[in-house]
């Protein structure tokens, strides 16, 4: 555990909590892509199956349970409790275009051709692109609530911090996982455009709106 890994995890946790609280306090999931949230629930489910097979640390186990629990709670709020506020007309990204290629890639490029390992690889690849339905929704409506941009910022910062964590681990532990690193780089790149808008607009007190 190093400082980048820890702050990355906390940033990820902050993102998840911000989204849950935003929906809960406003009693609305307007502007939130339910499809992205389903993909994240799928990511956590397929990655954390090792909860059943191996114990790493109390920290590791508790964080996994919190992430999975919050992911399903978010999906429940969007598709059940506050379903009436869900903006399905703008959430039109075709997720099969992500899930099918990512599934195929997980079968082809993995560390070991075993069910749990393929599911882990699938989750890593899927996480890297799971935010696309949300970004697509924002590009379609041309705007995002400020609190939603805070969520996205924390989520992007999390993977960027993991990149520093992997550099650290490579130098000090000789550890590197090429699958996680390549997917993590792709994931971070997808946020770059958003980071630019966040820094130039939201941090200056303006609402995030895209030119028509």
């Amino acid at each position: 555990m190093n400082v980048f890994r820890l702050t990355g995890d906390l940033s990820h946790l902050a993102a998840i909590i911000i989204l849950l609280l935003k929906i809960w306090k406003s009693r609305s999931c307007a502007g939130i892509s339910g499809k992205s949230q389903i993909l994240f629930a799928l990511v956590f489910t397929t990655r954390y199956l090792d909860l059943l097979t191996s114990f790493i640390s109390l920290y590791n186990t508790s964080m996994k349970i919190i992430y999975v629990g919050c992911a399903y709670a978010t999906v429940y709020l969007i598709y059940a409790k506050f379903r009436a506020t869900y903006d399905g007309n703008h959430d039109t990204f075709r997720v099969e275009f992500l899930v099918v290629p990512v599934g195929g890639l997980a079968f082809l490029v993995n560390h070991d051709f075993s069910p749990l390992e393929i599911l882990w690889t699938f989750s890593i690849y899927l996480e890297s692109v799971a935010i696309l339905p949300q970004l697509f929704m924002i590009s379609k409506t041309g705007e995002a609530e400020t609190i939603t941009t805070h969520y996205l910022f924390c989520l992007g910062v999390y993977r960027a911090l993991y990149l520093f964590n992997w550099i650290w681990r490579f130098y000090f532990e000789g550890f590197f996982d090429m699958i996680a690193i390549v997917a993590g780089v792709v994931q971070t790149i997808l946020y770059c455009d958003f980071f630019y808008l966040y820094i130039t607009k939201v941090l200056k007190g303006k609402k995030l709106s895209l030119p028509a």
């Binding site: 990820h12 075993s114 390992e117």
Partner: peptide, 10 residues
């Protein structure tokens, strides 16, 4: 053993 690749991250 599943966790041979050191998936100790979240």
């Amino acid at each position: 053993e599943y966790n041979v690749y050191g998936h100790d991250e979240l």
